[in-house]
Each structure stands twice: as C-alpha cells, then as structure tokens.
Computed example of a mutant assay.
Amino acid sequence: MKNLYLGLISLFLLVVVTACSVTEHTETKEHIDNIKHLKIQKTNVMITDDKKLVGEMTVPDGKNKNKHIVPTDLYYTFTIKNTSKNGISLPGVEKVKLRIEPDKDLLSIVKETIGTNIYDVDESGLGFGLSIENEISSKKTSKFTLNYTLGAKQKNDELPLLPSKEKLKKLQDNALKGTLIISQDGKDVARFRLDTNE
C-alpha cells in the first residue's frame, strides 16, 4: 500500500512538472510567433548626449569627490509595426533582446573611430541601453530603442574622450550598414536589414 501511495505521488509530480514545461514551451513559442509579425517601418540614428535619452554617470574626481558625466551615444530608434490581426504581448527586456550586427564597412569604421567594436558590448565595455514596449496593438506601431556608448566630452576615468566631429559624422553616416537582430531566450528569432528595412 505504501509503495502504491508513493507511486501515485510520483506520478502526480511528474504530471505537474510536464504540464508546467508544456505551458512554458507553448508561451515561448507564442511569443516567438508574435515577433515574426513585427516589421520595421522606419529607422532613425543619431549621435547624442541628451541626458534625457542617455542618462548620466557619476565618476570619481579626486579624493572623496565625484563628478557627473553625460555620455555620448550612438542612438537608434526603430518604428516597428505589428502586422498581425491580434495584439502582441512581448515578455519584456529580460527575455527579448535587440542587437545590431554590423557589416564589414561599419565594423571597420566603428573600430577606426572608437577603437573597439561597440556592437559587441562584452568586448567594448562601454555600455549600451535598450527599450521595448511590451504591448503592440493590431496594425499599430511602437518604438524600440537601442543605444551604444561612444565616450564623453569631458576627461574622466570611466569613458574615453570622444573622437573628432568628422569621425563621428562618418560613423553616423554609415550606422545603418548592418542588421537588427531580435532574440528571445538566447535564440535569434528575427533579422532586419537596417538600410532596406527588410
């Protein structure tokens, strides 16, 4: 009788774990299917040190003193449309990520300008920002943003000084030579050419 009781408990736990796993898999598949209904309508890119967009850093400045630094970022804004007949609910930035894969020309220019590949945030160590909206109504648009830190105008111990305006302009002029990649749970689920919006 005891063995039968333990067997029933084990079976019940197995059913519960399997059901939870199937539910999680179904939700993930649904979100990935939703992402496939997104289309880029417009991409804007600018170089900015607008504190409202890029924030502010507090860095050490001598003994027991700090100073505030506003970084300068390469700032992308994507206008994205939900082409499906239903509203799309995304799980948020903890699961959905955006990144840019630069073409060879852009990669060469960014390394020449900044000294590192800003698009590889682990390699550059300069930081980046990301925002997405969790709800997009049917046939409506939403704005996603992605920004990469380039440096700062003021000398400091945290960020490099910005290169010349001419070099920054060349970087901005070529900043759409790449592909926006949307990933979920570590898997790439959508790719969009930035210079063609396809």
Rank of each mutant, 00 (worst) to 15 (best):
residue 2 K to A: 14
residue 3 N to S: 05
residue 3 N to V: 02
residue 6 L to D: 04
residue 7 G to E: 00
residue 7 G to M: 08
residue 10 S to K: 04
residue 13 L to G: 03
residue 14 L to M: 15
residue 14 L to C: 10
residue 14 L to K: 06
residue 15 V to N: 01
residue 16 V to T: 01
residue 20 C to F: 15
residue 21 S to A: 15
residue 22 V to G: 12
residue 23 T to S: 12
residue 25 H to V: 15
residue 28 T to M: 10
residue 28 T to C: 05
residue 28 T to V: 10
residue 35 I to H: 04
residue 36 K to C: 05
residue 36 K to M: 11
residue 40 I to N: 06
residue 42 K to G: 13
residue 44 N to E: 15
residue 44 N to F: 14
residue 44 N to K: 11
residue 48 T to P: 01
residue 52 K to Y: 15
residue 55 G to A: 11
residue 56 E to W: 02
residue 57 M to L: 13
residue 59 V to S: 05
residue 60 P to K: 01
residue 67 K to R: 00
residue 68 H to K: 15
residue 72 T to F: 08
residue 72 T to D: 10
residue 76 Y to M: 11
residue 77 T to F: 01
residue 77 T to I: 04
residue 78 F to G: 05
residue 79 T to A: 05
residue 80 I to Q: 07
residue 83 T to K: 10
residue 85 K to S: 03
residue 92 G to F: 02
residue 93 V to H: 02
residue 98 L to R: 01
residue 99 R to I: 04
residue 99 R to N: 14
residue 100 I to C: 10
residue 101 E to K: 02
residue 103 D to P: 00
residue 104 K to T: 07
residue 105 D to R: 05
residue 109 I to Q: 12
residue 111 K to Y: 08
residue 113 T to L: 03
residue 115 G to Y: 05
residue 115 G to Q: 13
residue 116 T to E: 09
residue 121 V to P: 02
residue 123 E to P: 03
residue 123 E to D: 14
residue 129 G to T: 10
residue 130 L to P: 09
residue 138 S to W: 09
residue 138 S to C: 11
residue 138 S to K: 05
residue 138 S to G: 09
residue 140 K to H: 09
residue 141 T to N: 12
residue 144 F to Y: 06
residue 146 L to R: 03
residue 147 N to S: 14
residue 149 T to V: 05
residue 150 L to N: 07
residue 152 A to N: 01
residue 153 K to I: 13
residue 153 K to F: 04
residue 155 K to L: 01
residue 160 P to Y: 08
residue 161 L to I: 02
residue 165 K to W: 10
residue 169 K to S: 12
residue 169 K to C: 13
residue 170 K to G: 07
residue 171 L to I: 02
residue 171 L to D: 03
residue 173 D to R: 12
residue 173 D to W: 07
residue 177 K to D: 08
residue 178 G to Y: 01
residue 179 T to H: 07
residue 181 I to H: 08
residue 182 I to T: 14
residue 185 D to W: 14
residue 187 K to N: 14
residue 190 A to M: 07
residue 191 R to A: 12
residue 191 R to D: 07
residue 193 R to E: 00
residue 194 L to K: 02
residue 196 T to S: 03
